[in-house]
Design a protein around this nucleic acid. Structure first.
Length: 253
DNA sequence: ATGTCACAGTCCCTGTGA
C-alpha cells in the first residue's frame, strides 16, 4: 500500500497535472490540500473514471482538503466538529488504515493572530489523534507549514523570527508525535533534507532553497512495515507546477 | 531576499494570501 500527500495549490488550476500524475503513479491513497474548491466544483466524476473514490472537505476560495482512494473509503469525517470554520482536515478509513489529510494554518507572522490560530489548530489535531482507535494503523499527512528541525530548512538564519521554524510550532509537532506517531520520511532518511516545498519566486527550486513541511506521520506499527518514503521532485518541474511536491509513503501491508 | 502564482472583485488591473 502507498499513501501520498500533495498540496496542489488549487485543484482547479492543477487538474491537468494531477490527472496526468494519477495516471502515471496510480497511488492507493492520495491526500490533497488546498483544493480551493467548493464541493460542487470538485472533480468526483473525473476521479471515478480513474478508479478513485473521493471525499472532499471544500470551502471555495481558500483551503479545502480531500482524500482519494482506490482501496476503499469509509467513515469520512470532516473538520474537528464545529470548532473550525475553515476546511483544513478530513479523515477516512482506507483498506483498514485511518488516514487524515491536513492543511495546517500558515501562521503568517509570529505577532499575527493567525499564528495563535495555527497553534490552537495543531493542539486540536493532537487531541483528535490522541483519541484514535489504536487497533487501527494511522497516517496523518499533509501540509503542516512547519519545518520540524533545522535540517528541514535550507537556511535557518534567514528564518529567525519567522513562522514555520519557531519553537512553539516545533513543540506542537513533538506533542503530536508524543501520542505515538513518527515522522515517516525523516525516520527513513536521517541526513537528507528531503525538501517538499520551494517558493515560486527567486528560482528557489533550482537553487535548492526549500523546506520540508509536507509530512506523513504514522504509528509505530506502520513504521515497522514501511518500505520507502521519498519526495517526487519531478512533479515540481515543468509547466504550471504546484509549489509543493508529493511526498510518498510505501508500506508492506 | 523576494525575481511567482492563484483567487475574487474593483473585472484585463488590483489587493490578498501563500
Amino acid at each position: 500500500m502507498n499513501v501520498v500527500t500533495w498540496n496542489v495549490n488549487s485543484l482547479t488550476a492543477r487538474w491537468p497535472r494531477v490527472e496526468t500524475w494519477l495516471l502515471d503513479k496510480n497511488p492507493d491513497v492520495l491526500l490533497i490540500q488546498e483544493t480551493k474548491q467548493t464541493d460542487a466544483k470538485f472533480p468526483f466524476k473525473e476521479l471515478a473514471a480513474l478508479g478513485y473514490d473521493a471525499a472532499h472537505n471544500g470551502q471555495g476560495q481558500w483551503n479545502g482538503v480531500a482524500i482519494l482512494s482506490r482501496v476503499g473509503l469509509e467513515d469520512v469525517v470532516r473538520g474537528f466538529g464545529d470548532q473550525d470554520p475553515e476546511a483544513r482536515i478530513i479523515g477516512a478509513t482506507c483498506a483498514g488504515v485511518r488516514v487524515y489529510s491536513c492543511y495546517v494554518p500558515n501562521g503568517r507572522a509570529l505577532d499575527d493572530p493567525h499564528y495563535q490560530y495555527k497553534l490552537r489548530w495543531l493542539s486540536a489535531l493532537r487531541d483528535l489523534v490522541a483519541k484514535r482507535d489504536r487497533s487501527m494503523h494511522i497516517v496523518v499527512g499533509g501540509d503542516f507549514n512547519v519545518a520540524p528541525t533545522d535540517l528541514d530548512c535550507y537556511d535557518p538564519s534567514l528564518f529567525e523570527g519567522a513562522t514555520h521554524v519557531s519553537e512553539p510550532e516545533r513543540a506542537a509537532l513533538r506533542a503530536l508525535e508524543a501520542t505515538g506517531l513518527v515522522d515517516l520520511t525523516r525516520s527513513l532518511h536521517l541526513d537528507e533534507p528531503c525538501y517538499s516545498w520551494w517558493d515560486y519566486r527567486n528560482g528557489s527550486f533550482h537553487r535548492g532553497w526549500g523546506l520540508r513541511i509536507d509530512l506523513l506521520y504514522v504509528d509505530q506499527g506502520l513504521l515497522a512495515k514501511a518500505t520507502a518514503s521519498y519526495v517526487d521532485r519531478e512533479a515540481r518541474k515543468g509547466e504550471k507546477p504546484s509549489d509543493h511536491a508529493p511526498v510518498v509513503g510505501e508500506f508492506a501491508v
